[in-house]
């Protein structure tokens, strides 16, 4: 219920109607008038205005909150089914079904709780929360979380397994051998100094 007084600045009073016993149930949507009025917002003071008033302020940009892993990665939703070859150069979050091959040697793959991947996979890093059926080749690390299921052979440098994970297959741990630093070559013999033009001219037998 709203009461308005005219003329002059409008004063709006919002009252909540209390239903009485025996009143018919409310059947209609709220009237637009009953909706709360938007509060007037003040524009934030500008740095110049604050400085003028002598109020201390921070001029650094506000700290950015860390985004969730899945939000940073490209994602395959849980109702999506992909069949074929999947190649990615960015991180990928699969919560749907993928069948075929997954090739992302420079990136991280996360198989979400609803994710089911029936594929050979090559990735830099894999986190399994859902299910993988297929051989897996990992450049860095694979994590198999609790209740995750992986059936296939794993080749990896590092492996983390939580209790309650199901795994069937073989594990081949690749040694992370340090890259061979090429031995310094012996100093190459200095190229013979360029012969002076005068001599060249002399060899040429160009006599004057």
């Amino acid at each position: 219920m709203s009461i308005g007084f005219q003329p002059g600045p409008a004063i709006v009073i919002h009252c909540k109607q209390i239903p009485k016993r025996g009143d018919p149930p409310q059947m209609w949507n709220r009237k637009k008038d009953d909706e709360p009025m938007p509060r007037p917002t003040l524009a934030p003071p500008t740095a110049v205005a604050l400085a003028r008033e002598g109020i201390p302020m921070n001029t650094l940009p506000p700290p950015r909150l860390a985004e969730p892993e899945a939000a940073r990665a490209a994602s395959v939703g849980k109702s999506v089914v992909i069949k074929g070859q999947l190649y990615s150069r960015e991180d990928l979050y699969i919560d749907g079904e993928v069948e075929g091959t997954v090739d992302m040697p420079e990136s991280r793959l996360t198989v979400g709780p609803n994710g089911k991947v029936v594929a050979g996979i090559k990735a830099r890093e894999i986190v399994v929360v859902g299910t993988i059926h297929g051989n897996v080749e990992v450049g860095d690390k694979i994590e198999i979380r609790k209740d995750a299921k992986l059936v296939g052979d794993i080749r990896t440098v590092r492996l983390v397994i939580e209790d309650g994970a199901y795994f069937k297959g073989s594990i081949d741990i690749q040694r992370n051998e340090p890259k061979a630093i090429p031995a310094p070559r012996p100093a190459a013999p200095a190229p013979p100094p360029a012969q002076p033009v005068v001599q060249a001219a002399a060899v040429g037998g160009d006599k004057r």
Binding site: Y166, F167, K168, G169, S170, I171, D172
Partner: peptide, 10 residues
């Protein structure tokens, strides 16, 4: 060594 795994009870 190389490990192969299969949970027989599961």
């Amino acid at each position: 060594h190389r490990l192969f795994h299969e949970d027989l009870v599961a």
